[in-house]
């Protein structure tokens, strides 16, 4: 552990400031709390918000897991995990069940999380109304007045143009019947999982916003009675572990259009294969085969 910096890099006053924002966020689920985001030693847009939130909730005894696109070994997940190993000296794990704090980009783990876990999301654009109204001064007003008509018009226009709501990720949700919230760019497949036992914290560093979902908060994906929300995924089973319920990545195998589908959650896939499940193109599991 690097002693030149404070535990988990940020100084204690900064962590206090961030914790206050987190508590406020938990008290008003779905509300975007402005916070004085710091310049981190990794670029804005690469998870600085999530890193600051994780740094503020981590304790020395915690075990941390970092995923990007559901995988522990994607380059930026590796980089963030190394950052916490170096600056906080915390234990890390790739196993969802063993982690106290999980920082994620773009996915919710397949395995159900528990009450003693915290899921930290990296958020690029926290404002669900941003692409309808570019001005922050306007969108804050719209939230204050609960003026969400514009969002419903957008979804309606999607249906009238395309026959379906053409948002497939960062699908907007309504939290406890009050705030419309951006769940970060998770695929809409993950939206139903937003109602969970763990605490969910959302950090947007560049945009200087933190928001939160306390355990078991009611989270409803926006839809219409005649066009109900549908959590969709590729219509396949995982070719490695055979799971029919997990979210899948499509991998191009050759230049003749050959493809295979594999779990995006690498820990989920790995543990299924370790338990003896074999998919259509998989081979029986051997330790360190991957």
């Amino acid at each position: 552990m690097n002693q030149e910096y404070n535990f988990a890099y940020l100084d204690e006053q900064t962590k206090r400031m961030i914790r206050r924002a987190i508590l406020k966020g938990l008290a008003i689920p779905g509300y975007q709390v402005p916070f004085a985001s710091r310049e981190m030693p990794m670029p804005y847009g690469w998870g600085t918000g999530g890193v600051q939130v994780s740094a503020s909730v981590l304790t020395p005894e915690d075990t941390m897991k970092v995923i990007d696109q559901g995988a522990d070994d994607t380059t930026n997940a590796v980089s963030i995990r190394k950052f916490f190993e170096k600056t906080a000296g915390v234990a890390t794990s790739e196993e969802t069940a063993k982690a106290d704090v999980i920082q994620t980009r773009h996915r919710i783990p397949e395995e159900d999380l528990r009450e003693d876990q915290i899921l930290v999301y990296q958020v690029p654009i926290p404002e669900p109304l941003r692409f309808l109204e570019p001005r922050e001064t306007e969108t804050r007003k719209m939230h204050a007045l609960e003026e969400y008509g514009l969002m419903h018009v957008k979804l309606y226009e999607d249906i009238s143009k395309n026959g379906a709501i053409s948002t497939s990720y960062a699908y907007p949700v309504k939290v406890e019947g009050r705030y419309v919230m951006d769940p970060s760019p998770i695929p809409k497949f993950d939206n139903p999982k937003l109602e969970m036992a763990a605490i969910q914290l959302f950090g947007a560093g560049r945009e200087q916003r933190i928001y939160a979902l306390p355990p078991y908060t009611k989270v409803v994906s926006l839809d219409f009675e005649d066009y109900p929300f549908e959590a969709s995924k590729a219509d396949h089973a995982c070719d490695l572990c055979g799971s029919e319920t997990s979210y899948l990545d499509e991998v191009i195998m050759d230049d003749a259009g050959g493809r295979m589908f594999v779990c995006s959650d690498t820990d989920f896939c790995h543990s299924r294969r370790a338990a003896g499940h074999v998919g259509a193109q998989g081979v029986p599991f051997e330790e360190d085969a991957a």
Binding site: Y44, W46, R105, S168, A170, P187, F189, D249, E250
Partner: peptide
């Protein structure tokens, strides 16, 4: 930072767009 972050993997989101 934000401009260059689009170099990071986005295949989960892209996959959901592909399906749609």
């Amino acid at each position: 930072g934000f401009l260059e972050h689009i170099k990071l993997p986005h295949y989960v989101d892209f996959q959901s767009e592909l399906e749609l």
